[in-house]
């Protein structure tokens, strides 16, 4: 692992963490636990498509662990990890079949996978299936927010590829 790679990944983790912390300050959109914009996923999706799975996974894990520490909610770590890892897996699988102009699709399915992972974690923590009543609402919000963050990652990918950086 070169110094350049460490520096770049650390920088991306810092960017993702900043986005995550700013988003955490926004008021909740609806009284549904787990519903949020997921803007930090822009960094994960972009890194996965541009840098590869290993770098993206390290950025994701770094952001989730540090995010839980900075937000002061270690209980939320379980939900973040479950959602983040399932989202990562689905995006990773989709990467094999998607072109650079279809990255937003990975964003949509990734967001839905994130919500599903959170619901699974909440089921285990609460020992109750009651949280699945939120499933339709969460998936619908996941489609909208996932399309948004996926498009953001797609444009970022195109612009940075054109400028020849990264």
């Amino acid at each position: 692992m070169t110094t350049k790679r460490i520096t770049r990944d650390a920088l991306l983790t810092a960017i993702a963490l900043t986005i995550f912390m700013v988003e955490a300050q926004l008021p909740a959109l609806a009284p549904v636990p787990g519903m949020k914009l997921g803007l930090a996923n822009i960094v994960t999706v972009w890194a996965l498509f541009t840098l590869g799975p290993l770098d993206a996974l390290m950025i994701l894990l770094g952001r989730i662990l540090l995010g839980a520490v900075f937000a002061g909610q270690l209980m939320a770590l379980i939900y973040s990890l479950a959602g983040g890892l399932l989202c990562f897996l689905v995006t990773l699988l989709l990467r094999r079949v998607l072109t650079a102009r279809q990255i937003f699709i990975a964003g949509i399915f990734g967001a839905m996978a994130h919500n599903t992972g959170q619901l699974i974690a909440a089921t285990l923590v609460l020992k109750s299936l009651a949280v699945w009543y939120y499933c339709p609402l969460l998936l619908l919000s996941g489609i909208v927010t996932g399309a948004f963050t996926g498009l953001a990652a797609q444009y970022l990918h195109a612009r940075l590829a054109k400028s020849g950086s990264s």
């Binding site: 909740a28 009284p31 549904v32 636990p33 909610q73 209980m75 939900y79 909440a122 923590v125 609460l126 109750s128 009651a130 949280v131 009543y133 939120y134």
Partner: peptide
Amino acid sequence: VCVHEGWVSGGTRPIVCLPAKLV
């Protein structure tokens, strides 16, 4: 989140408080 859910009088949506593990 549980407080913002407000009054619940019907429907199948539960009030959930994840930190307190309350449903």
